[in-house]
Design a protein around this nucleic acid. Structure first.
Lengths: 192, 192
DNA sequence: TACAACTCGTACTATCGAATACGAGTTGAC
DNA sequence: GTCAACTCGTATTCGATAGTACGAGTTGTA
C-alpha cells in the first residue's frame, strides 16, 4: 500500500466492500457458524476473490468479525448503569445482553476454531462478570434467591437469552417482544 | 437372509455389533450432530465397512438412532403420572425430560437432515404437548403465572434443559444435581 | 487521463467425509 | 466341519469447501 509518493489511501470502493463483507460475515456466522466463504461473499454482494483479497483466509475473516463483535459488546455493556436497585440493574443488563446475543448469536462458536482460546475466553467472561457481580449484590440486599448456585444462575440466564434468540429467528416471537419476556422470566426465576 | 432351508437368523456377533453401533452413534451424535461415520465406527469398536454393512448410509443410521430415541422418549414420558397438583406433575415431567434431553442432546439436530421433517416435528411436539397441557391446567388452578405467552414458557423450559445438559457436559455441574436445579429454576420462573 | 488499486471469473490443488467396489480372512450356526 | 454370514482393510469415486494462481477488465484518484 505504498508507492514513490508515500502511503496510498485505501480506495473508497474497497472500504465499502470490506464493510459489506464484515457485515455479511457477522450475520451469516451468527446464524450458522459453519457458513462457507462462498455464502458470505454472496451475502456481501462481492465475488469470492474480492473477499480473499481483503481477508487472506477464513480464520482472518472470523477473527476480524469476532474482534469487532467483542469491541462492540464491551462498548455496549460498559455504558450500562450498574448502580441502584439490583433488579433495575439486572433489567438493564439483560436488555443490553439480549441485543448482543441476538446480533452475534453463534459467532462465538465460529470464533472458537480461529481465535486464540484465551482471547475468546476473556471476551466471553467479561459480560458474565457484570452479571455475576449484580447477582451477588442483589443476594446481599435480599432481592434475589440464594438457594441456587450462582454459576447455575448465570448459565440459566445465558440459556434463556440464547433460546429467545433462536425463537426470534424461527419467527416464534417478535424481536421487539423478546427483551421484555427475557427480563420477566429471568426475574421470576431469580426471585427469592 | 434366506437360503434353501428358509430364513437364516442374524448371527449373534452381528447383532452385538449392531447394538454397539447404535449405542455409539447415539452418544456421538448427541454430543456432536456432525460426528463422522468414521468416529462412530471407531467408538463402536468396529470397522467402517462393518458399519456400512448394517446401515447403508449415514441417513439410515441417523434414522435408526433417532427412531430409537423417539420410541424410548415416548415410553419414558408416557409413564409419567399427569394427575394431581400441577406443580408436582411439572416436577415429574421436568425430571423425566431432563434425562431425555441429557441423553439425546443434539441428536435432534443430526436428525433434521436425515428424517422426514414431519416425523421429526411430530416426535418433538409429543413431549411438548404434555408440558403445554400441564401449564394450562396449572394456570387455571392458580399455580402458575399467566402474564407470559405459553409458547414462550415452553421455549424457556427447553432452553433451561438444554443449558443444563451442556453445563453437565462441560463439567460445570454434576449430573446428579442437574434435575433439581432445573426444577427449582423453572418453578421459580413460572411462579405467579 | 494515466495508473495503481481493485474486482472477479476461471481453473487448479488440496483436504475431508460419504459412499462404493473388491476381496481376503474370520467365525457363528447348523 | 462346512458354508454362508460376517468383518474389515485398501483403493477409488464423488461432492463440498478452503485456498492459490493467473489474468483480463474496471474504476477511483491524483
Amino acid at each position: 500500500m505504498t508507492n514513490a509518493r508515500g502511503p496510498v489511501a485505501v480506495r473508497a470502493d474497497a472500504r465499502r466492500n470490506i464493510a459489506a463483507i464484515l457485515e455479511a460475515a457477522t450475520t451469516c456466522l451468527a446464524r450458522d457458524p459453519d457458513a462457507s466463504i462462498n455464502d458470505i461473499a454472496a451475502a456481501a454482494g462481492v465475488g469470492r476473490m474480492t473477499l480473499y483479497g481483503h481477508f487472506g483466509s477464513r480464520g482472518a475473516l472470523v477473527s476480524a468479525v469476532a474482534g469487532r463483535a467483542i469491541a462492540s459488546s464491551e462498548e455496549e455493556l460498559a455504558s450500562v448503569d450498574l448502580t441502584g436497585d439490583p433488579v433495575d440493574v439486572l433489567t438493564r443488563l439483560l436488555t443490553a445482553s439480549w441485543t448482543l446475543t441476538h446480533r452475534f448469536g453463534a459467532l462465538v462458536v465460529a470464533a472458537e476454531s480461529s481465535l486464540p482460546p484465551d482471547t475468546l475466553h476473556d471476551a466471553h467472561q467479561a459480560p458474565i462478570k457484570r452479571v455475576r457481580a449484580i447477582l451477588r449484590r442483589g443476594r446481599r440486599e435480599g432481592c434475589f434467591r440464594t438457594d441456587l448456585p450462582l454459576e447455575w444462575e448465570v448459565t440459566t440466564i445465558q440459556s434463556i437469552l440464547h433460546g429467545a434468540s433462536t425463537a426470534v429467528h424461527r419467527g416464534e416471537i417478535s424481536a421487539s417482544l423478546a427483551p421484555a419476556l427475557v427480563v420477566k422470566t429471568v426475574l421470576g426465576a431469580l426471585a427469592p
